[in-house]
Design a protein around this nucleic acid. Structure first.
Length: 277
DNA sequence: ACGAGGTCCTGCGAGC
DNA sequence: TGCTCGCAGGACCTCG
């Protein structure tokens, strides 16, 4: 679930709470979330590890420890990274995957109801390989309209699917792909390599503006997403298309259409405002 | 190279 | 009430 704005929100909140702190007594309740590292090695690596930095890359939370390794958390649909000020209640413990004790009797907890999320432990070399396979950060100043155009031209896939392809562009998932395409007034099913230059410029502006607005709102909470304090985001209140199938378009009043024809993911759009180009 | 579909998991709401 | 079914914000894989 968490897309770029949600992960960015979590990271901004966690950073001042974690940087410089030392992890103690890691407890791993479910080992099936680990990728490429065995439970015993992972737990040993976290114990007494000092946090150097907390950053975001695409939809990943990246915690650098011991000036060497990176704990890379990908929350996917239902993962959440929370700091608790006291011992966990039974309800809080229910979906806990990983718990780490922080100074001051606080606890860092990764919880994930569906456990589709993943955790890996990467050294510098493995991290470089990993991050090099992911596309550019859309909010980076280096990400220009021509950068987006070059990337989208690489595929004939539907533009909505291309936007969500992490190799082409980092951090955009279903919600923000829908919203950006509406803002840019582009039909989600159009082949990505068929967009004109002005359309690419509109899409570039739309992607960046919707992501920035969502970061400012603390992300979008449909069901599971919570910030590190356990609070919901607020961008769900200003979504223009996602989750609004059958409701009137905010621009023209036409009933919004929802389809599952693109990559079997729900796509909501206005067939009038986002007509075939 | 592409699309379709299955897989990892659990919860929830709709419908019967 | 209680059951089954389909769906859910992601990403990876195989198959044809």
């Amino acid at each position: 679930m968490p897309e770029l704005p949600e992960v960015e929100t979590i990271v901004r909140q966690l950073r001042p709470q974690l940087v410089g702190q030392t992890f103690r007594n890691p407890r791993l309740f479910h080992t099936d979330v680990l990728r490429g590292v065995r439970p015993a090695r992972f737990v040993a690596a976290l114990h007494n590890a000092r946090v150097g930095s907390v950053t975001r890359r695409a939809k990943h939370i990246v915690i650098r420890i011991q000036d060497r390794d990176r704990v890379v958390i990908q929350p996917r649909m239902t993962g959440a990274l929370l700091v608790y000020e006291r011992r966990l209640s039974a309800e809080q413990r229910r979906y806990a995957v990983l718990q780490v004790t922080l100074p001051g009797r606080r606890y860092l907890v990764y919880r994930d109801v569906r456990r589709l999320g993943t955790i890996s432990l990467l050294d510098a070399e493995a991290w470089t390989t990993y991050t090099d396979r992911i596309g550019p950060e859309p909010l980076s100043p280096k990400f220009t309209a021509s950068c987006l155009e070059t990337r989208m031209r690489r595929t004939r896939q539907a533009i909505k699917k291309a936007l969500m392809d992490q190799r082409l562009l980092a951090g955009v998932g279903n919600i923000y792909a829908n919203e950006a395409l509406f803002r840019a007034q582009i039909d989600p099913s159009r082949p990505a390599d068929g967009l004109s230059r002005p359309e690419c410029r509109r899409l570039h502006r739309a992607v960046r503006s919707v992501l920035r607005a969502a970061v400012d709102a603390g992300g979008t909470t449909i069901r599971d997403y919570r910030t590190s304090t356990g609070d919901p985001g607020s961008f769900q209140h200003v979504l223009q298309v996602y989750g609004r199938g059958g409701e009137p378009c905010v621009r023209c009043g036409t009933r919004l259409t929802t389809t599952h024809s693109i990559d079997a993911r729900s796509t909501t759009f206005c067939f009038r405002c986002q007509g075939p180009g």
